[in-house]
Design a binder for these strands. Structure first.
Length: 126
DNA sequence: ATCGTGACTGGGA
DNA sequence: ATCCCAGCCACGA
């Protein structure tokens, strides 16, 4: 039943979502692989998001705005120059802490689709 | 087809 | 608090 095609199509859809979502990250904001993965329909598999971005390096996508949940610029080594990622973020107004990580609580951006999904979510913890 | 790796994350010791 | 392990998806050898 062309299930194979569906699978392939699904994969493409996933990658497409990752690209689209990454492109929508506001300037001066960052998001995490896990958030993107969840926004794409899968709660886990944040690794696949990184792989998708790996193929998007040559694209115009602001992949430098994607960091891990810890705010670490884990993908900086893939930007050619290890400092390029941080420089780009700094030039956009993103602040870093003493550990060289992005201040997530200040610059973390959550995909609208997820905000829509959480709806009745209780208020943030203190 | 199997095995290992990776731009990750969450949970357990 | 840190360290280790398992799960997850895609891909190259």
């Amino acid at each position: 039943m062309k299930r194979k095609i569906q699978s392939d199509r699904k994969k493409k859809d996933f990658f497409d979502k990752v690209y689209d979502l990454t492109a929508k990250i506001p300037k001066g904001k960052v998001t995490t692989y896990g958030l993107i993965a969840e926004a794409c329909g899968i709660r886990s598999s944040a690794r696949t998001v990184g792989w998708a971005l790996n193929g998007a390096q040559e694209s115009n996508l602001p992949c430098h705005r994607v960091v891990n949940r810890n705010g670490t610029l884990t993908g900086r080594v893939h930007f050619g120059d290890p400092n390029l990622m941080e420089e780009l973020l700094r030039s956009e107004g993103v602040e870093f802490d003493d550990d060289g990580n992005v201040i997530m609580q200040k610059h973390l951006w959550i995909p609208p689709i997820l905000e829509r999904r959480k709806k009745k979510q209780k208020k943030s913890r203190s």
